[in-house]
Design a protein around this nucleic acid. Structure first.
Lengths: 138, 138
DNA sequence: ATTGACCTTGCCATTGTGGGAAGGTGCAGA
DNA sequence: TCTGCACCTTCCCACAATGGCAAGGTCAAT
């Protein structure tokens, strides 16, 4: 199976498949005489695993660890769960940050008349004449 | 005021101040004889505005627009509010995506015993033997 | 033999930030 | 005055993930 078909089958673009090979996330694919990459069912399985992990927001580094655990007969489910929970915590942190931004900006927007006049608490707050406090991330 | 002090005063790193100058987000700073950049209160005010906008998650492109609106006497608060609400919608979209990931992964982790045995629904789900459906983003 | 769809490598762009090297400046203390 | 340190300058590299483009090779069907 050549790379385009593998891409369709797994939902990982050909570009990214090559990239994952380059960074060592997947082993170098077999080559035909034409030098075209050739993918087996086993390869597709691995790529599918990677795509699903990416869909869950795992980073490349985390996926590297997941792949190791996947291939490790002696691993315990505790190891996998720990990794997953770390990622859940990361997701929650990101969500919290974004939600603070959302809340602050929503408050500012609520306080803004949104009419033809120039007065605007949003701009004033950004400008530092601050009645409405802005949250301080990082 | 030289760049390090300006950085401390505004919370924007010297590195980023130079970068913002390079991409034209702030005008080129005045220079002393030494070629050191020299910042006025006016400059600090602009940098502070930028930092607060970044803290609210606005992109550089959006901040560019906000700065235009800031300096525009004839703008209406409607224009600012519209921009802010677009950004709120972006934030909400990101939050929604992350929260789907969080929920899916939390379900998987709940279904995982997390003990010494190797059987793990998380890995199995990633591997595609899927009883528990994974969400399909993009 | 030509066309068109696919593949190959390689380089550039994005977004926002940090790191570091190599060298200039400015001030304070011996 | 010389030395050292802290700061500044520019320039290049890196990250994570992805896309795009260009110049060329391959293959199947016409």
């Amino acid at each position: 199976m050549q790379i385009g078909e593998a891409a369709k089958a797994t939902g990982v673009s050909a570009k990214m498949i090559r990239h994952y090979e380059f960074i060592g996330l997947v082993p170098a694919a077999d080559r035909r005489d034409s030098n075209y990459r050739d993918y087996s069912h086993h390869d597709l399985h691995r790529l599918g695993f990677i795509r699903r992990a990416r869909d869950l927001g795992f980073s490349i580094a985390e996926i590297r660890d997941l792949l190791k655990l996947w291939g490790d007969q002696s691993r315990s489910s505790k190891d996998v769960k720990a990794l997953a929970l770390v990622h859940v915590a990361e997701l929650e942190k990101k969500i919290r940050l974004l939600d603070e931004m959302r809340a602050t900006l929503t408050h500012l927007a609520d306080a803004c008349d949104g009419d033809h006049r120039p007065d605007c608490p949003i701009i004033e707050s950004l400008a530092g004449r601050d009645g409405l406090k802005l949250s301080q991330h990082h």
